[in-house]
Amino acid sequence: MTDAVSRFVSNATAAGSEVVELKTLGECFKRVVEVLQVEGVKHVSVQPSSATAPLYEMLRGMGYNVVSPAAGIKPLSVVEAGISPAELGIAETGTVVVATDSEAARLVSALPLINIILLDKSNIIESLVDAHRWVRGFISKGYAVSFITGPSKTGDIELKMVKGVHGPHRVLVFIHES
């Protein structure tokens, strides 16, 4: 188990994700706020889930403009940071699996320049191919599934890597205990 976690951390880091191992979900929320402050974020979107519900309220209470994915594309497009709960981590590739109940909610991790992902340590599995069971399960329930491994980037010009093409230039993964 710990093996899988450390493999996840090293592979995700190699892919350009900023991985932080934390204890509780509460600690993760604190870190989220720190990042938002450092980056000067005002508009934020939180992908709805039982894990992120308290964060949603917390950020609203702090005066952030918290945009619901259901609000429509115009309000979503001004969001500077998106916070997504991950369903799964894949150690082999350093990937997080994000499943959203709509295509609109998928945009929380797709549109802004910063994407913070919360991952429960106990949901890290070893192999990419083994993820097929979960992926199938989510899809059959009508979820939109995304694998995210590092920031949006391109090598299309002279094969030189540039981050933040159409998606986030920063991807942070906060790992917490169950």
């Binding site: 709509s102 939109a144 599934v145 980037k153 090598g155």
Partner: peptide
Amino acid sequence: TGQVISSYVTFISPRSEGFGRTR
């Protein structure tokens, strides 16, 4: 590309909803 995996793998199915309506 020589990567372990790309930044994104996007799974798209007819089942997922668009903005408040069936896409």
